[in-house]
Design a protein around this nucleic acid. Structure first.
Lengths: 148, 148
DNA sequence: AGATTATTGATAATCGTTTTCATTTTCGCA
DNA sequence: TGCGAAAATGAAAACGATTATCAATAATCT
């Protein structure tokens, strides 16, 4: 596998204008819908392979849904974090590292770990959902490892 | 399901002295080994159910492995984050929220999101592994969404 | 063009997890 | 103590996302 697919571009553009993370299967059916009817869309296998490759090359981000399903999203070029609405699933991107870098440096210094990276998954209730859903969701639905 | 199982205690104690996250199946076979031979261990289904319940009750943390497998670990009582060694899988616990709270407050203020929680998964190379593995791991192996 | 190599698609295999359902256990209460 | 409802359990089937397989196709090189 030298790392190309004629579908790379198409998959990327299917992800292009998305504010949500998408599963491989969503992307696949989106590709199928997107064509007028002339050419055949790539197979599911190929979409999986393409997503793998793009993720490995750092072109796209992957996260895990609560149920372990892999979700993909186009990377922005600058470092960023994600803010997930626990109610509707909308994801917003948080500009960059904020004042997190010093935290990482400190952790690295104190723990002896090197090459520190971090994945910060923020979750909350977005303004829209906050209005409609008054209170008291099932705790089951909350991010499983929200610890703060 | 009113929320008890005669295995709750046993599952918790199987998790008790662990510095790694464990999969349900690991826990299950651990329970099987732990008995002399008299009584029968709980079934895999029951271990799954028990872990669900404990996670919902906040007794244990869950995270996802790279492949989406769910991993469980006993919660400490105070808020904390996890620092994962990308080479050996060792997990250390980072005391508490550090100076992260102000970051969350700011994000909440600027985004309009409410009830902000966060899961901070830090990863790096632990001191032991840092000595033995000089450099250049396969980028495939890195945490998929290490963004900082 | 011909040979070599990589990519693709269809399908089967994997594997962690969840459901189902019949059986057993637990618990309240007369 | 014994009965009956409700919950918990185990075994196995169902599920579903992902991965592996392999023959067919397309791309590449000389």
């Amino acid at each position: 596998m030298r790392g190309t697919s004629k579908y790379d571009r198409e998959v990327l553009s299917a992800l292009e204008c998305d504010e949500r993370f998408r599963s491989c299967q969503e992307i696949h059916s989106r590709l199928a819908e997107a064509r007028g009817g002339g050419s055949r869309p790539p197979s599911l296998s190929t979409v999986y392979r393409t997503l793998h490759r793009l993720a490995r090359q750092g072109e796209i981000d992957t996260i895990h849904a609560e149920d372990g399903e892999r979700l993909y999203r186009r990377c922005e070029t600058s470092p960023h974090h994600h803010l997930l609405c626990r109610v509707c699933g909308r994801v917003e991107e948080i500009p960059h590292a904020w004042e997190l870098r010093p935290v990482l440096d400190r952790v690295g210094y104190q723990s002896g770990f090197s090459e520190l990276g971090c994945s910060l998954q923020l979750s909350g209730v977005c303004p829209d959902c906050g209005r409609s859903v008054p209170t008291g969701e099932d705790p089951e639905e909350r991010g499983a490892d929200a610890v703060l």
